[in-house]
Amino acid sequence: MRISAESLTVRRGGRVTLDGASLSLAPGELVGLIGPNGAGKTTLMRAMLGLVAASGHSSLAQLPAARRAHIAAWLPQEREAAWPISVEALVRLGRIPHRRPDADHAQVERALSRMGLTDLRQRPVNTLSGGERARVLIARALAQDTPVLLADEPIAGLDPAYQIATMALFRGLAQDGRAVMASLHDLGLAARHCTRLVLMDRGRIAFDGPPQDALSPERLARIFGIEAHLEMTAEGPVFQPLRVLR
């Protein structure tokens, strides 16, 4: 399902945190949302979902909440799990919008195995490490089984293997015909795995296009203030930040 946003603007206490952002997300895409801290990545995704009051138009935000929960899953950056419930019970929370208990079990099992959690299923979530908890929360969003997935820094705090595995999983979801958008700080993983990059700077969308064009030396210097090495190899793009420019 294709979703779109037009001139989304969010004001918070006189400050404009999101300034006229327009973009669309189509099935088959894995869009990486990149930009420095405070550029408005989280606000953009929350405004698209209707979780924060915004002017402009968002196709997701105008849906009723119950319907939207069938279309889009949201993985917030805060890794909250308030109670010592089991891994399996937490993943099953993703099935709340669906009132079809017969399909629930299979979806929960699939999400658990995709994130390598089948051995941890009985563990209370408060006994997990930070990275394990992050995987459980990703599995929760996967269990929601929606055509659209928006994830805020999903791979922060994961070990390298799970970072790569999670990006590959997202890419696989996109290839299955879903639309995935994830904010990322690892530009190397973003360049390698995303089909498209959206670059944000001070509340605006500064660039929206193919990964190799997004990470031009000029944009890296102007927006991130860094210099980096980007090379196209047989393995795909390889990106390594080198030094801070300012």
């Binding site: 909440a65 889009a72 949201w74 909250e80 799990a81 308030a82 929370l93 919008p97 929760r140």
Partner: peptide, 10 residues
């Protein structure tokens, strides 16, 4: 349990 934002999104 997942926080207010995640609860609203489901």
């Amino acid at each position: 349990t997942l926080g207010e934002d995640a609860a609203a999104s489901i």
